[in-house]
Deep mutational scan, measured.
Amino acid sequence: NNDALSPAIRRLLAEWNLDASAIKGTGVGGRLTREDVEKHLAKA
């Protein structure tokens, strides 16, 4: 759900053309954090 994404995370996902549903969020309530996105990018 994009409503739970911060503007910074939305921008990062758009910049790298990533799908938020493909990344497991570790923040409060399962929210994506910058670290989650960076770890996903490191694996790719």
Rank of each mutant, 00 (worst) to 15 (best):
G29A: 08
R11H: 12
N17D: 15
K24H: 10
L5S: 04
E38I: 15
A14G: 10
G29N: 13
I9Y: 03
A14R: 08
A22T: 12
D19P: 06
D36A: 01
S6V: 05
N1R: 12
N1Q: 12
A42T: 09
E38N: 06
A14P: 09
A14T: 09
D3P: 10
R31G: 08
A42G: 09
L5F: 07
N17H: 11
A42V: 11
G25H: 07
S6R: 03
S21D: 11
K24L: 12
G30V: 03
L5W: 05
A8W: 04
A44P: 07
N2A: 13
P7K: 11
L18R: 01
K43F: 09
D3T: 11
I9N: 01
S6G: 09
E35C: 13
N2M: 13
R34K: 13
E35T: 09
E15K: 08
V37I: 14
H40M: 09
L41H: 15
D19H: 05
T33L: 08
G29K: 06
R31W: 06
S6A: 09
A44T: 14
N1Y: 05
A14I: 11
T33I: 05
N2E: 13
S6Y: 04
A22G: 07
L13Y: 00
G27N: 03
T33Y: 00
A42R: 13
H40Y: 15
P7G: 07
I9E: 03
V28M: 09
D19V: 07
V28R: 09
L12W: 03
S6T: 11
G27K: 02
I23A: 01
L5H: 06
V37Y: 02
S21Y: 05
D36H: 02
N17E: 15
N17L: 08
A14K: 11
K39V: 08
R34I: 15
G29Q: 08
A14S: 09
H40N: 03
V37L: 08
A8R: 06
E35K: 10
P7W: 03
L18W: 05
A42N: 09
A8E: 15
S21Q: 10
V37Q: 00
I23F: 01
S21K: 10
G25I: 05
G27H: 02
A4L: 14
K43T: 11
A8K: 06
V28H: 09
D36P: 01
A22D: 15
K24V: 15
I23R: 02
P7N: 11
G25N: 03
G29R: 06
D3G: 11
E38A: 08
V28L: 12
E35S: 09
T33D: 02
L18S: 05
T33A: 01
D19Q: 06
G29V: 03
I23L: 06
A44M: 15
D3Q: 12
I23V: 08
G27V: 02
S6H: 08
L41G: 04
A44E: 12
D36K: 01
K43R: 12
D36F: 02
L41Y: 08
A42P: 06
V28T: 10
A8H: 09
L32S: 01
S6D: 15
A20P: 13
L12E: 01
N17G: 15
P7S: 11
R31F: 07
A20E: 14
D36W: 02
V28F: 09
S21G: 10
S6W: 07
A14L: 13
L32H: 01
A4C: 13
A44N: 12
A4K: 13
L5K: 02
N1W: 04
G27M: 03
N1I: 13
G25T: 05
V37H: 00
G30L: 00
D3Y: 00
V28G: 07
A20I: 10
K24Y: 10
T26A: 03
A44K: 13
G30I: 03
G27T: 02
R31N: 10
H40A: 15
K39E: 11
A8S: 12
T26V: 03
K24S: 10
G30K: 04
L12D: 01
L32T: 03
N2P: 11
G27Q: 02
D3E: 12
D36Y: 01
T26W: 02
A42W: 06
I23P: 01
L12M: 11
I9R: 00
D36Q: 01
A22E: 15
L13I: 07
L41R: 06
E38S: 06
V28D: 12
P7F: 02
L12H: 02
E15G: 03
E35R: 09
L5D: 05
D19Y: 03
I23K: 01
D3F: 02
E38P: 01
P7E: 15
G25K: 05
D19M: 06
N17S: 06
L41M: 09
K39N: 13
S21L: 08
L12P: 00
V37K: 00
R10A: 13
R31L: 12
K39L: 13
L13D: 02
T26P: 02
L13W: 00
E15F: 08
L41N: 03
L32V: 12
A42D: 09
E15A: 05
L13E: 02
E38M: 15
G29I: 03
R34C: 14
R11D: 14
N17M: 06
V37A: 02
T33Q: 04
V28W: 05
H40G: 03
N2H: 13
G25L: 03
R10P: 01
A44Y: 12
D19W: 05
A14D: 15
T26Y: 01
L32N: 01
G30N: 05
L5M: 10
A14N: 13
V37P: 00
H40D: 02
A14W: 12
T33K: 05
N2Q: 12
A20S: 08
K24M: 13
R31D: 07
L5I: 12
L41I: 15
N17F: 08
G29F: 03
A4H: 14
K39Y: 07
I9S: 01
L18A: 06
A22Y: 08
G25A: 11
G25S: 07
R10C: 15
N2K: 12
H40R: 03
V37E: 01
H40S: 05
L13H: 00
K43I: 13
I9A: 03
E35H: 08
K39F: 08
E38L: 15
I23W: 01
H40L: 10
V28Q: 11
S6L: 07
A42M: 11
T26M: 04
L12V: 04
A20D: 07
R11T: 10
R34H: 10
L12I: 08
N17K: 06
R10Q: 14
G25Y: 00
L41W: 07
R11G: 08
A8D: 15
S6F: 05
K24D: 09
A20Q: 07
L13G: 00
S6I: 05
N1K: 12
E15W: 08
D3H: 11
G30Q: 04
S21I: 07
D36I: 02
D19C: 10
E38D: 06
T33F: 01
T33C: 06
G29M: 08
A8G: 09
A44D: 08
T26K: 02
D36N: 01
V37W: 02
R11E: 13
R34W: 15
R11F: 06
N1T: 12
A4W: 15
L5Q: 08
L12T: 02
L41A: 07
D36C: 04
A20H: 05
K39D: 09
E38Q: 09
S6P: 10
L13K: 00
R10N: 06
H40T: 06
E35N: 09
A8V: 10
I9M: 09
V37F: 03
D36R: 00
N1E: 14
A8M: 07
K24N: 10
L32A: 03
N17Y: 07
I9Q: 03
R11V: 08
L32G: 00
G30W: 00
V28E: 14
D3I: 10
I23M: 05
E38W: 14
L12Y: 03
K39I: 10
I23H: 00
T33H: 00
E35W: 08
G27S: 04
E38K: 08
T26L: 05
T26E: 03
D19F: 01
E15V: 05
E38T: 09
S21W: 05
T33N: 03
A44G: 09
L18M: 08
A20G: 08
A14F: 11
K43E: 11
P7Q: 13
D19R: 02
N17V: 04
A22V: 11
K24R: 10
L12R: 02
E15P: 00
R34Y: 15
A20T: 06
G30D: 05
N1L: 13
L32I: 15
I9T: 04
R34P: 09
G30S: 04
K43P: 05
K43D: 11
A42H: 09
H40F: 15
R34Q: 14
E35F: 07
S21T: 13
A44W: 11
R31V: 14
K39R: 14
L13S: 00
P7I: 12
K43L: 12
L5N: 05
A44I: 15
A22W: 09
I9P: 00
E35V: 08
I23G: 02
